[in-house]
Amino acid sequence: MSVLVYVEHSEGKIKKSSFEATTYGKDLSVMLNLPCVAVAIGNISAEELKLLGAYGASKVVHCNSPELSSFSAQSYAGAVASVAAEEKAKVVLLSASFSVKGMAPRVAVKLQAGFADGVISMADVSSGFKVRKGAFSGKAFANISMYSDIKVITISPNSYKILKGEGSAEVVINSYKPGAEENKVKVKETIRATDKISLPEAEIVVSAGRGMKGPENWGMIEDLAASLGAALACSKPVADAGWRPHSEHVGQTGVTISPNLYIAIGISGAIQHLAGVSSSKTIVVINKDPEAPFFKAADFGIVGDALEIVPKLTDAVKRFKAAH
């Protein structure tokens, strides 16, 4: 029996969120007195996969058949479910990325397992098996009891502290091949802005709203984000007006995030926006209206004109970075 962790990678490197999932898997496996095994799919080197040992995986199963070289929810779910059966997994853990959201429910159906998504803290295994997740788009939390023999769980990115120790994992090759029926989705084109930091995984997010007056003023927001190594986000009205792409919209009907630091500039803080960002660990609000509701949900605030404050803040960040 085992705890099985699905490991994602991009451009040959294991994703940070997968180190997080592996740490979670290791801590859970200790409580359940089971080994922690990782599974990776597609083109990645054995050298890179061995790194998972330092995060607690005793073994890494690598499914590297050519049919699995690009992601398809159906074929990847088939591979993970097959490895889960071979390793007699009691729990299958995945980090809730865009792709995983499309494959984890399939894994659960294949294994006839209970499924919990976007879990934000360690499972409670003291009696039964309970997990906690966000609900109502950040307006509440749900505590869920899972009754099935096998459990499939996805973890919300940035919710568990990564712990790196020593060690190297044993890598074994698995020859699983998806059937033609399982591999019908063909990737035609991948467009990746390599310099862009992914929003759901970002530790710092700089977000701006209508208070910026127009898209022509976004240069200073980009500068601030670059100085902090932050991802860019925006409010719904800004995305709806076409000032910024919808992929940057955070809030109840956009992306839900939980970074360590969220800086909201010229965003009033409508309930739908707060819902999507309320689990951020620290919130900074810059707004010229001292009555803006966002100040009630913030840790730090500056009342004033964003167009004047943001460039000064960027300078202050640069001075700080130079000194540290």
Binding site: A116, A135, I144, S278, G301
Partner: peptide, 16 residues
């Protein structure tokens, strides 16, 4: 296979 056993709401933040 699973069920929600209870909901709760986030703790309010301390004053800005």
């Amino acid at each position: 296979l699973s069920e929600v056993i209870g909901y709760d709401k986030p703790q309010p933040r301390s004053t800005v």
